[in-house]
Design a protein around this nucleic acid. Sequence first.
DNA 1: ATGGATTACGAGTCTTTGCTCTGA
DNA 2: TTCAGAGCTTTGACTCGTAATCCA
Length: 924
Amino acid sequence: MRNRDKSKSQTQSSGTLARKSQEGVNKFLRRSSRLSSSGKKEQDGFFLENDLKTNDQEVVHTMDVCNASTVEGCHRDAIENSQAKEQEVVHSMDVCNASTVEDCHRDAIENSQAKEQEVVHSMDAHNASPGDDCHKDTLLDDSEEMNDSDWEDGSTGGRKPVRRASAEDKASLLSLLPTHLLKISEVSNITANALTPLVTWFHDNFHVRNLARAERSFRTALATALETHEGTPEEIAALSVALFRALKFTARFVSILDVTSLKPKADTYEPSNQVAERVSGGIFSTSTLMVDNLKRASIAPSPVQTSPCNEKDDHGISSRKSKGGCSTSNVAQSRDSTSFKESTDGKSTCQVQPDTSRQCVPKNSQGLKRKGDLEFEMQLAMAISATSVETHENIHDSSDGNNSLEASIPMKRWKRIERVESASCFQGFSTALGSRKVGSPLFWAEVYCDGENLTGKWVHVDAVNAIIDGEQKVEDAAAACKTSLRYVVAFAGHGAKDVTRRYCMKWYKIAPKRVNSTWWDSVLAPLRQLESGGMGGTIKVSEHPGENSSLDRVILPEKSGQEASKEYGSKIEVESSVKGSFVATRNSLEDMELETRALTEPLPTNQQAYKNHALYALERWLTKYQILHPKGPILGFCSGHPVYPRSCVQTLKTRERWLREGLQIKGTETPVKVLEQSTKLKKARVSEDVYDEIDSKETIELYGKWQLEPLLLPRAVNGIVPKNERGQVDVWSEKCLPPGTVHIRLPRVFVVAKRLEIDYAPAMVGFEFRNGRAVPVYDGIVVCTEFKDAILEAYAEEEERRAAEEKKQTEAQAISRWYQLLSSVITRQKLNSYYRGSSSSQPSRNIQDKNIETKTPVQSSKDNKQPTAHRKANNQDTTHTTSLVALEVGHEHVFLTKNESFDAENSIRTKRCECGFSIQVEEL
DNA sequence: ATGGATTACGAGTCTTTGCTCTGA
DNA sequence: TTCAGAGCTTTGACTCGTAATCCA
């Protein structure tokens, strides 16, 4: 029972969780659908954000490299943004609209109150409008004005002065692309190798940089990144996706979700107030100062480092998490500051970029008390100190070399530490940087290469680090940087798909850290459809070369197709069916690929990994109720122990336990396992009147499911119910009922069976623990089927009779109580009358009122012959004043049953005394 | 120094079929 | 005399996860 209650509460809580989650997803879907149907403004242009809070009509001809929608929390409705009544006509080329969903599951877990804290960076390359000539405008026309409000954060409130856009502002990725690279879009059956020059070019021209920027929208940041060729890893990765999509590739934005651990203590950070306290003189101030000094000694000062560390990171993710202080944003920035690089020729490069995050480290170290964090601080300081010389030796300018910031801030230049092997690179970081997620690959692109394999393949493309098809390296890189690969999600359209399997080679390490897969799948299900639909909207129109410019042929979603020119739209319709089947095939192939990976995970090298491994098992890690059957095949060995498929592990149960499931042991089967269980049985020696403890060995015989057959209980014969040795039937389920019997779950039904002399057995349905011991719980009886109707009929009659009897008893009790009440009143009145004139009036003080008003269902009869009771007629229901003074003294009313009458219509029972007094009782 | 194996321990789960006295 | 109900007293073996320790 206790467990049952627990499981019940768990079910309820999980139900609440699931409901909240579903609400969140539904909100997202509703917003998404609004976005897709809310008109040309949003489809063609930006997803309007708060920074566009102006009622002024603005005609903005701008090149919008990214359609980024940032939604912090599902409760922040996108509609609110559009309520700003912007009437801008935004002519833009949306190249990228990637989305990042973060922490939705964490929020659901941590906060069942549905304070969804999802951060959705929606970046959808498919929101480009096909028929919009703005592409050409924005790409080719430098003379158009660009409103600054599109580029600056609107949080400042007022409008900023319009400025002329520079040439860089209006430059586009495509216009930046060398002509020979533009031709890559015409290649059919694209392969990963064919992407190499493109990725190399991108890598040479766009760089990860952590600039201390004021808080602003992701879209604005992305535009700036395009303008300056620098940005955070997220921005650069998003730009790379934009580029791929602009070149007609099917691409999506992939991100490792930086989620909070399921276990509260795993990766919590101190609240800011605690940090502040410690900064102001906490017990760790000495040690952290030591680290601080060490760091100061080893790190050359940079002008940029003077910027406050509590500025929010460019990511919505990090900035949201850094609400409590700079600690988390520092982590995020640190993560950005170092990136893994591997050139396509096999050499790997680690890029270390000193940035503004450094100046946060001392504060951060002061605020954190964990041993690992302190170690990290010291390791970081030592590592930087130790590598500073090497860094200077190996330092080269970034490839473009024309960045003013770089020119003015030498320490912000890239430090490229060449490594021959990528693994050694990761290890270097792991050793030097300890317990922090630094330099981890967090964002990249996936490009669908139909020339790969026979059926096409999603190819990992990390343009930031110039890595192509390096999916197997992601896990190691992330692990080296202490980043968990729990969720790798690909975004396209307004949807998302979990592709963790593609990048996770050690699923057994990841699986326990993920949320319940059923819940996660249900959350992602609608997003998967959107993702699929978004990707499905990508149409390659290379089949019609020459009809449109290359820019017009850029990728168009179905929703945008509605707004395309009619002739163009008709082509889309024709092609949509072909495309649909292709997309479906591609999706199913990818699903198969991911499923195959799930089933073909390499054997772990340590034994403990087999403990709960979903695919493999070691015999030594089986529990006492498990066995290998069949014992083979042997898939390999781990430390000399044979590895078997997990499917060979069978759960064993006792005969009784199998009976509960409606199964019984086959006649010829012997137990596959016999356990010896030592039990101490207390047995009383009656003769000696002492207790003795006797150690006895009991055996537990266990059977496997292959030894079972359906339960065959003896059939009921001649109305006799087969019973067990306790004279009852254990009804664990319907399967446990003997054939020909039925379970009647009614209270007191055994009385009826007994009265009818029908054979029955008490139905035991379970146990509950009372007073430290198990007590069987009975519910109803088991009788032969042929007696069911008779018993039910008799039960109904019996219940009716019982109800009437109960009612009668209740009425009698009520009468008795009324009688007692009235008698006591009369007695008091008599006493009052008796002692009124003689002695003190004290006793009569409480009964001075001549009339005692009673508000009861009691009514005096209309035909009351006594004048002592009269009736207030204002309410039929009974407020009456009984003049008790006039009650006949010396007579006790007796209401005999034979004198009663009952008015069924009004439910009024009239009780009469022999003296003629009567009362009416309304039966409720 | 690191990672794997082993051990210890705590928390949670599963187990499971009165006896005696009192009062109606 | 019978029977229903209240009160009594509060398992213990096992599994699983985690941390500490040992060892190669």
